[in-house]
Design a protein around this nucleic acid. Structure first.
Lengths: 214, 214
DNA sequence: ATAAAACCTGACTAATCGGTCAACTTATTT
DNA sequence: AAATAAGTTGACCGATTAGTCAGGTTTTAT
């Protein structure tokens, strides 16, 4: 017999759960937690509202499930980097990954942004702790690079912020960018933006852009 | 007799209108349009709910008034810059201005961010047109700088996006930054962040940071 | 002074929406 | 096959909340 988290368990209905989560992610990204109606999620999933409630009990619950699924994607090549690695390679790769995330999962990025703008009331202490630890570790690596004369920047933490800001901007502010450019950014435009960003950040840190990212 | 926009006019109550707008800005920044209750705005302004409705008729109306007030602040030193100006000076100044805006008007930045994330459903065509024109003009200036060999970047428009992204990040993601740094960013930390960002962007464009921004 | 306009607000309403419930069907176990 | 659990859904309810209204007070114009 399979274990269950709280009271009930899922068998075939697990597919429905994923269907609902996917629909909810799109709605929450567009309208936020408060602005999203359970009915909208149900309509998008092609199910009656009551069925959504059957699986997730409350709207808050559904939102938390969506959020949790998003935070599970928060891994990157930077996680395991050490000061013996080449900063140009690591940073270029890290930026590429985050840009790829903005291209393929814009709704995830938007939900995270909405959550932070609202003061992160639903981000559990567990995620926050892990995030602090992760950041401290990365800052330490960058500082070692600086000490080794491999990289120049005023502040390692601010550098991380600036990378996050630029990459997330392409997902969160896509509406603005689309309007300014007259069309949506596709794979081609994302590749150009990624190259431009890698060039800016790496050059800004006194690094040479690896040929594979030019 | 003074003219009025729709039907009525404001006299002494103009002070109240501003009081309400200020309270509404804070609430909308924290909870968004859908998530904000008129009662919350009224409470913050120290007025009965009906009084808020008296001045602004509907919640949407109030939101639009807040938004309009925010967009009126969208001016900068970059507006009048030409290709004969020094790009290092202009960009450093522009970044400083935008960072100052994030420090002093974080709620404004957040409301704008929420609006864009939601697909900009309330940004009138007038603002959008103006914004496109402004951006095209600035891109042209940067491209002239590039042609003159004063500045290096892959794409002028992406450069603007990256500047916006970084500066707005300090307002919009303040909750995250506060958590990672263990305390809120004050004037001192903003000055350090501004210098780090100016260094990154200008160096990234092959410019030398002016002494006054070091 | 007085008329008119602007301003103020408690009481109320209509509509929305999250969530419950009970009856039902389908799947699984033994 | 029969018992039990999981899944499905229409009908309904209570709470919330945007917005109305009517009757008042204060301010301003003349």
């Amino acid at each position: 017999m399979t274990q269950n988290k709280t009271i009930k368990e899922g068998r075939v209905g697990a597919a429905n759960k994923q269907l609902i989560l996917s629909a909810a992610e799109k709605e929450f990204a567009k309208n936020g937690l408060k602005g999203t109606r359970i009915q909208q999620v149900a309509d998008r999933a092609g199910l009656p509202k009551t069925n959504v409630l059957y699986y997730f009990k409350t709207k808050e619950n559904l939102y938390l499930a969506v959020l949790e699924q998003i935070l599970d994607l928060w891994n990157s090549v930077f996680d395991q980097a050490t000061s013996t690695d080449d900063p140009a390679e690591v940073l270029a790769r890290y930026i590429s990954e985050k840009m790829e995330f903005s291209l393929t999962r814009p709704e995830s990025s938007k939900i995270f942004a909405l959550e932070i703008i609202n003061g992160a009331p639903n981000l559990g202490g567990f995620f926050k702790e892990r995030h602090v630890t992760w950041t401290e570790g990365r800052v330490a690596v960058v500082n070692e690079w600086i000490a080794q004369g491999k990289l120049k920047t005023d502040d390692a933490e601010f550098l991380l912020f600036h990378i996050w800001a630029c990459c997330q901007h392409y997902a969160d502010f896509a509406a603005q960018i689309t309007h300014l450019q007259g069309k949506e950014m596709g794979r081609v435009e994302y590749d150009r933006a990624t190259k431009a960003l890698i060039g800016l950040i790496l050059t800004g840190c006194g690094l040479v852009v690896p040929d594979s990212y030019k």
